[in-house]
């Protein structure tokens, strides 16, 4: 069987390469399942990122809260959702940010998909 790895526009396949690249970032985000960890992060983001060994690209993406940058730095959307959740952002806010739309327009786009 041929194994087609041709990229899909607007989509990063979270594969072994991404999983290695993003390990520290995803591990930090996974730790946000725990309330104490969330509080520790919010109290001192820089110290918490150092504790998990994030690289500079990952740290900057975390500071900026730019989801496309977080993905480029190896972030996986399921772990990133825990990070976004700390700021009260849901998947529609995250979708709007990545597509450069307002949240209202993004929701409208979803609604239209049902027509």
């Amino acid at each position: 069987m041929t194994h087609n790895k041709e990229p899909i526009p607007g989509t990063v396949m979270f594969d072994g390469t991404q999983a290695m690249k993003g390990y520290a970032l995803n591990k930090m985000c996974y730790s946000f399942n725990n309330k104490q960890n969330r509080e520790e992060f919010l109290a001192d983001e820089e110290a918490y990122m150092d504790k998990y060994g994030l690289n500079d690209e990952q740290k900057q993406a975390v500071r900026d809260k730019v989801v496309l940058d977080l993905i480029a730095a190896g972030g996986n959307i399921y772990y990133l959702a825990k990070f976004a959740g700390m700021y009260g952002l849901n998947v529609q806010d995250v979708g709007a940010q990545q597509t450069g739309m307002s949240v209202e327009d993004f929701k409208e786009k979803l609604r239209r998909a049902g027509e």
Partner: peptide, 13 residues
């Protein structure tokens, strides 16, 4: 559904 990337919000009825 797609949550991540510029293709977020993709739906195929």
């Amino acid at each position: 559904h797609q949550l991540d990337g510029q293709r977020a919000g993709f739906i195929n009825k």
